[in-house]
Amino acid sequence: MDLEAFIQANLPVEAVPGVPEVRLHRAGPRSGLMRLADADPDFGSPYWARCWGGGLALARHVLDHPRSVAGKRVLDLGAGSGLVAIAAMKAGAAQAQAVDVDLYAVAATRLNAQANEVVVEARLADLTQGAPPADIDLMLVGDLFYDVDLARSILPFLERCVAAGVAVLIGDPWRASLPTERLTVVARYPVADFGDPGGVLRDAAVFSLLA
């Protein structure tokens, strides 16, 4: 199956709730994502086809506070749809990388960047076991603390980034595995997190990771 053709045909480009400056290929009830699952035994959760609370808060923040990213080289870690990287480019970032471990997320990010007429380098990689990238100024992390084991692998990597002089901003709707004792709240936003009942908003925040 041609993945990009499937996304273009079945996931319409729509404005993002709360972040209308960005438009994404988003799944709906008739998108037929199960066809991807049936065609690929390694198909995982299609988080890249939805909008999540932490990413919404982080995207809203960089657009409302463009000085946070202006002229900087940013990396959207666990990028999913690429929402945060795209928002950063629209806010004036010098360049943006969007990195994910899911090839479907990488394909969706490429298409979403094209739909928003911005340049984002989308690539498939797991960066968390290595040294901090030397070519970025700011790490943007949305919705990566939903699982305790994932949080335990993500946090040491982000701490290495801070120690190397890379700033870290995290967007999250206060999930249980969030290491709040290591974070400072920068801003708070009401967001519609995926899976919540329609129209219900929850509190999400943007955090900086303490040195």
Rank of each mutant, 00 (worst) to 15 (best):
M1I: 11
D2T: 02
A5W: 01
F6Y: 14
Q8Y: 01
A9Q: 15
A9G: 05
N10E: 13
P12K: 11
V13A: 11
V13K: 09
A15K: 07
V19D: 02
P20I: 06
H25A: 02
H25E: 02
H25F: 04
R26A: 13
G28L: 00
P29G: 08
P29N: 07
P29W: 02
P29A: 15
S31V: 04
M34G: 11
L36K: 07
L36H: 10
F43W: 15
F43V: 15
F43T: 09
P46H: 09
G54A: 05
G54Q: 10
A57G: 05
H61T: 03
H61A: 04
H65A: 07
R67T: 06
S68W: 00
A70M: 08
A70R: 14
G71D: 08
K72T: 09
K72D: 01
R73Y: 01
V74L: 12
D76H: 12
G78W: 06
I86F: 10
I86H: 04
A87V: 08
A88V: 07
A88M: 11
A88H: 04
K90N: 02
A91I: 12
G92N: 09
A94P: 02
Q95H: 14
Q95V: 10
A96E: 05
Q97W: 14
Q97S: 13
Q97A: 14
D100K: 13
D100M: 12
D100N: 09
L103Y: 15
L103W: 15
Y104K: 12
Y104N: 11
A105Y: 09
V106W: 02
N112P: 05
N116M: 06
V118Q: 06
V120R: 04
A122Q: 04
A122R: 10
R123E: 08
D126W: 14
G130Q: 13
P133S: 11
A134P: 04
D137A: 07
D137I: 08
M139C: 11
M139R: 00
G142T: 03
L144D: 10
F145E: 11
V148D: 12
D149A: 15
A151F: 06
R152C: 10
S153M: 14
F157K: 07
L158H: 07
C161R: 05
G165I: 10
V168I: 07
V168G: 00
V168T: 00
V168L: 01
G171S: 12
P173C: 13
T180I: 12
T180F: 06
T180D: 06
L183N: 01
L183Q: 01
V186P: 00
Y189P: 11
Y189Q: 06
P190M: 03
V191Q: 04
A192D: 03
D193S: 11
P197F: 09
P197W: 09
G199Q: 01
V200P: 00
V200C: 04
R202C: 12
R202H: 12
F207R: 00
L210D: 00
L210G: 05
